[in-house]
Design a protein around this nucleic acid. Structure first.
Lengths: 236, 236
DNA sequence: CATCGCTAAAAAGTATACAGTATCTAAAAC
DNA sequence: GTTTTAGATACTGTATACTTTTTAGCGATG
């Protein structure tokens, strides 16, 4: 049993801060969804052959029903593909899809972050700072961990807009993009340029400089895509 | 048994043309997904109380497993909300969400359609013409039918771009938007302005006039949103 | 030797029954 | 009148079996 479903293993969807004594009630399918999603993003799940539902269910110590619900949701999310009676497969990664994902992010994320910077309250800013520091701390960890922290930092810049659907779509795109980053990043460890860019983004956000933040994110996403195309990808 | 699952009742996801001898293999969960989705959009499913899974499964003549898979996917799609141990509910409609949906459409749809007009081949154009005529024919039908044809017309202007993720997101937004249109449209029947606008869009598309199409769609979506805000909503 | 078709194993999809647990309602107790 | 408690309801998850489809093996045939 590689991954246990003990409470400690529960991954909050995007590292959402969940303080204030709110008890997080999750169904089993929710947890399986998060676990399998992170496995796909991390590349742990083989992408060349279909997912054996019985085997995966046994490994996770669950039955087929919640597993299939999680897989169905992951397909809707774009991480899995399925063919009737043939099961689920991890979606193929193609250069065309990478370009598509980044073009969509480019269209949505910078303007959303710019608006978020204006709407953020002190709690939002504190959360963003915490995410930035976590990302900083994780710089020397394994790549999937860095990528996860990176995603949480990016999402913390978006969440203050308070538009659920916009947030959901941007999150979906961030998850999809992360696969490519994890798959193509050099085992280089810490990347200086990305760190600098994140620092600038944080500063612009905290200064409520919406225009500058928008420009920074635009350039950040653009350069990440071109790095991906060039085969070298610092963490976006 | 209000809705049967006989093959004739199978709704293709977006009215995708499926000729050329391609056999469409669907799981039960796929069909349930499409049926329940259309019910939600049409407003047939009550939004004030949770969905009784046993009752709905019995009504559809299926078991809970494929039903729950379909519901999980619909939640991911943004049409349903769920709370653990409390079940699924049809998502609430709010003015804020309507604005959010239309703002996102505005950001994605016109430019996508403009690109599609340049990429479309003869088959794509023929499909679009067919959708336009179907929409025209349906003008005096019941509102959900008009709205469905309208969605298929809009999607036919997008599909030629051949970018699966972009198409999926635009389709998701179109479905979400449709709820508001169906809910707020006067029982007025045929709407002259919408018909004219669609006609112009079709002409621009067929003329490969990308810039004009983009401007037309931008205005079309904008005016639909303002109509929705004003309480009167011709079919967008 | 390649290919076709048959057969058997494997896996997906679905149904059913049952257990456990959470939620809600309403009656009962204080 | 407020709180407690009990019961009903319904969601969640497991176990099992059955059907259908896919896939792989394998021998027969051209």
């Amino acid at each position: 049993m590689a991954t246990t479903l003990s409470p400690a293993a529960i991954l909050s969807d995007d590292g959402r801060t969940r303080g204030e004594g709110v008890i997080l009630v999750q169904t089993l399918a929710d947890r399986i969804f998060a676990i399998v999603r992170e496995r796909i993003v991390a590349g742990t799940l083989p992408g060349d052959r279909p997912i054996r539902q019985d085997a995966l269910a046994a490994e996770l110590g669950v039955s087929k029903i919640p597993l299939r619900e999680a897989l169905a949701r992951l397909e809707q999310e774009g991480l899995l593909q399925s063919a009737a009676n043939r099961g689920y497969m991890v979606g193929a990664m193609t250069a065309a899809q990478a370009e598509e994902i980044y073009e969509l992010r480019l269209r949505l994320e910078p303007v959303a972050a710019a608006r978020a910077a204006l709407l953020a309250d002190d709690g939002d800013r504190a959360t963003l700072i915490a995410r930035f520091e976590a990302l900083d701390q994780a710089a020397n960890s394994d790549l999937p961990r860095v990528a996860l922290c990176n995603r949480q930092f990016h999402m913390a810049m978006i969440r203050p807009i308070g538009r659920p659907l916009t947030i959901q779509i941007i999150r979906q795109l961030a998850v999809l993009a992360e696969r490519y980053v994890v798959a193509h990043l050099q085992p280089a460890g810490r990347d200086a340029r990305a760190h600098l860019e994140h620092r600038e983004q944080l500063d612009a956000f905290l200064a409520r400089d919406a225009d500058r933040l928008q420009a920074l994110l635009d350039g950040h996403i653009r350069s990440t895509l071109s790095d991906l195309k060039g085969g070298f990808a610092p963490v976006c």
